[in-house]
Simulated assay, not measured.
Amino acid sequence: MTHRSTALRRTTRATMAVAVSGSFLLAGATAANAAGSTDLPSFGSLGAFGSSAPTTVETPRLATVDNFRDVAGPGYRTPFGHMRTGVFYRANAITPGDADLATLEGLKLSAVYDLRTPEEVAQKADRLPAGPEYVHIPILSGDLAAGVAQLRTPDDARRFMQDMNRSFVTDPAARAGFAQLLTDLANTPGPQVYHCTAGKDRTGWTSALLQTLAGVSGDDVMSDYLLTNEYTAASMERTYEGIKAGQGQGIADVYRPLLGVDASYLQAGLDELAAKYGTVQNYLLDGLGLSPVTLAKLRIKLFG
């Protein structure tokens, strides 16, 4: 193997590591009620909670930030009404063109939470509108490039992604990052957005937590998670074709499962949560160390 091909392979692995690092409701709206001891349902108990329904508020599609969307979707249905849109947004790396930057400015965001590692940020820094506070909360530990380098088959890649989602439950540093993010979301006024590189793994996990906190059905939580494959289809295909051109179709096929999401990825994290904590409430309160008051503040925002 030539020096050039070795360097290209290393570059591809590093690029893929960056790409993959990109993934209960209590009745009553008062903090006093929400701060009580009422059990919150786990992810697995949400299947009967209804389905999504449209609202009059629509989130703009951004051509240059293709996985930007509202955490509430179209206003997902819950046992207590519909989620409130225009409060929390999710995204991939925020590097908009001029037109999309103007659109973002119109949303009057108060804060942007960047969940990427310092290495990811160095590769592609955010370009933000004037106004919002930038908060860096790096989530992910370990050498992703080394992990990617060990992949030999598409099934290896799928297991890699499943293990990443499990780490959101088992890794203390990851839990601390999610705790800080959810606490800041609860305590900061105004519309807010959080993102990672691809807007699918760390961002997807956070969105699943917020949607479940609001009482969104398990089916809708998973369907929303899988929307990444629709929103980013074109960019995923460009990345795949770039790997194929540089490394061949075999390598591109191995890495392809890293580019999008699969139901098994999120489900692996949810299963780990159930095994370690039993319920989502226990994960949020005991695993993340959130207070009942913080959960109450989030619920009030989710329903407003």
Rank of each mutant, 00 (worst) to 15 (best):
T2C: 13
R10Y: 11
T12W: 04
R13Y: 10
A29P: 12
N33S: 15
N33Y: 13
A34C: 05
A34E: 03
G36N: 04
G36K: 03
G36Q: 04
P41A: 10
G44C: 02
L46Q: 04
G50S: 10
S52E: 13
S52W: 12
A53E: 14
A53R: 10
P54C: 10
P54K: 11
T56R: 11
P60H: 05
D66M: 00
F68C: 08
Y76G: 04
R77V: 14
T78N: 03
P79V: 10
H82Y: 11
R84F: 00
V87Q: 13
A91M: 02
A91F: 03
A93H: 04
G97C: 08
G97N: 14
D98P: 07
L107H: 02
L107S: 06
K108G: 14
K108D: 15
L109C: 07
P118N: 10
E120I: 02
V121L: 11
A125M: 13
P129T: 05
E133W: 08
Y134L: 14
I137F: 04
I137P: 01
P138L: 05
S141C: 09
G147H: 09
A149S: 13
Q150P: 00
R152N: 15
T153W: 12
P154H: 01
A157S: 14
D163H: 00
A174G: 01
A179K: 01
Q180M: 10
Q180I: 06
L181M: 07
T183E: 04
D184M: 00
P191S: 01
Q192M: 14
K200Y: 02
A208Q: 07
L213T: 02
D220G: 01
V221T: 07
V221G: 05
Y225I: 09
T228W: 12
A245G: 15
A245V: 09
G248S: 08
Q249A: 15
A263S: 13
A268I: 04
G269S: 05
G269V: 01
L270E: 14
T279P: 06
N282T: 09
Y283A: 01
Y283M: 04
L284F: 11
S291L: 04
P292H: 07
T294Y: 05
A296I: 00
A296W: 10
K301S: 08
